[in-house]
Nucleic acid binder design. Structure first.
Ligand SMILES: NC(=O)c1ccc[n+]([C@@H]2O[C@H](COP(=O)([O-])OP(=O)(O)OC[C@H]3O[C@@H](n4cnc5c(N)ncnc54)[C@H](O)[C@@H]3O)[C@@H](O)[C@H]2O)c1
Ligand SMILES: NC(=O)c1ccc[n+]([C@@H]2O[C@H](COP(=O)([O-])OP(=O)(O)OC[C@H]3O[C@@H](n4cnc5c(N)ncnc54)[C@H](O)[C@@H]3O)[C@@H](O)[C@H]2O)c1
Lengths: 210, 210
DNA sequence: ATCTTTTTGTTATAAAAATAACAATATTGA
DNA sequence: TCAATATTGTTATTTTTATAACAAAAAGAT
């Protein structure tokens, strides 16, 4: 299958999440494009177009079979075997994420944490054990970890990214407030909360309408 | 000034952050577009175009005066008087954010937290006090809070958003895993960590190059 | 049976965002 | 002094993303 547009991948993830909630809440088995769109604050065309991209088709006029759609999305965005993830930096944010993450996605498993602080090493949240940085190579290999969530202090981020890449990690989700530089075979996604907040502040002040 | 494109606003926030770090680290006073671009993994044209949008100009060929640029960005994305922010849901994530946020941005002040749990009400992190939901209207008015960061459990999110809007809040940064529905005069920004992670997983598997 | 309505799937168009191209200008060095 | 170079500011083009338009199919109504 052709590689999907970034935005479509993001929305597919959200469709699935939303559909799972929807089934749980309303117990319906089918949903119209405009209903799903309304749940996500987007347009029905957008939904139909994304679904077209992944090649799923419903019987016309009946809406989409939710169970099937969830499955098809899974076939696209999940990998067949599950992917293992580690949190690097087991502080406030790292632990919050670990707590939250537990069993959230069947195909994404948070299997280890790493920290430099001897007081944190050995601790456990949600069955996720914290290891020292020295053991990173070993643990990453042992557990076949391919994605890291980076929540170390800013000053340590670049160095940690380097080490992670050496251990063989393939993707990084970076929550620290520095932009990392990675080779082109590593997929990097960055999120900065302050940027989001400043954006909200700007548009609260400047948006048309009132 | 004309309203800026969303992406430009996001990058301006990052330029400022990056420039502040850069000054602190290297003590230089000027920076070239390509240098700033490299720090953010984007192109120099992008930087110049954003800077064009905000109307700042340097002396040609000398690069940008960092101090001035930081200031001009501030004039654009900060509001003249500071904006007050509240965290709603003082759990793992809410507290992590509070700790992190402290004094991070001079013009964005985290001034209160709210929680439904009596054990949390009255507690304090980083001088940010937690209040009961009942006192929300009062505290929001008293402190002129216009932005809320929503970190309550998923099931409570829609209701809390409704209440927040009733109290007069103008922007919401939503970290819960449901999409909210707000009137068009409220600015809503949503971030879902699982979506980010699933995106990383997808592109780790599917990206061209190796 | 045929008309109307609803909803999908797809192609066409528009809008937003990123990139490229390049003129203008300052600086350096011959 | 004048050519070569480096860098900005801006317009033009391309790419990506979103929206609109509409044909086809199903279901129901008359
Ligand atoms: N807390 C938040 O809500 C929040 C929000 C956005 C961004 N961030 C960013 O996330 C990062 C972590 O924030 P936090 O609030 O959890 O901080 P924290 O201080 O609570 O946690 C950082 C952890 O990293 C560990 N650490 C330090 N150096 C390390 C190294 N070299 N290798 C591995 N681990 C190391 C520390 O021992 C600590 O446990 C920061 O960069 C911060 O800017 C945090
Ligand atoms: N922890 C994370 O890293 C993380 C990441 C992404 C998203 N989230 C989302 O953020 C939200 C909070 O996550 P968390 O890990 O901090 O959970 P948590 O359980 O630690 O915190 C939730 C807090 O909200 C309070 N609360 C419950 N009902 C409330 C109500 N009606 N009004 C106000 N407060 C109420 C609880 O008392 C608790 O203090 C969840 O929706 C979760 O999906 C969390």
């Amino acid at each position: 299958m052709k590689i999907l547009p970034e935005k479509t991948v993001e929305r597919l993830s959200q469709y699935r999440r939303t559909l799972n909630n929807y089934v749980a809440e309303y117990g319906k088995s089918r949903i119209y494009s405009h209903e799903l769109a309304a749940l996500l604050n987007i347009t029905a065309v957008q939904v139909r177009r994304d679904i077209m991209f992944i090649g799923y088709t419903s019987v016309q006029r009946k809406g989409y079979n939710i169970k099937d759609l969830i499955q098809v999305i899974g076939n696209i965005i999940d990998s067949p075997d599950s992917i293992n993830v580690a949190v690097v930096g087991y502080g406030n944010l790292g632990k919050a994420i670990t707590t939250y993450f537990a069993g959230n996605r069947p195909k994404l498993k948070l299997v280890a944490a790493f920290d430099i602080d001897p007081k944190k090493v050995g601790s456990e949240v949600n069955n996720v054990k914290c290891y020292s940085i020295e053991r990173m190579r070993e643990i990453v290999a042992l557990n076949d970890i391919s994605i890291a969530i980076l929540t170390v202090p800013t000053h340590a981020a670049a160095e940690m990214a380097k080490v992670l890449i050496q251990t063989g990690i393939k993707g990084i989700l970076n929550f620290t407030t520095v932009n990392l530089h990675v080779p082109s075979n590593i997929y990097l996604e960055e999120y900065d909360m302050i940027t989001s907040l400043e954006k909200v502040a700007y548009f609260v002040k400047h948006r048309p309408l009132g």
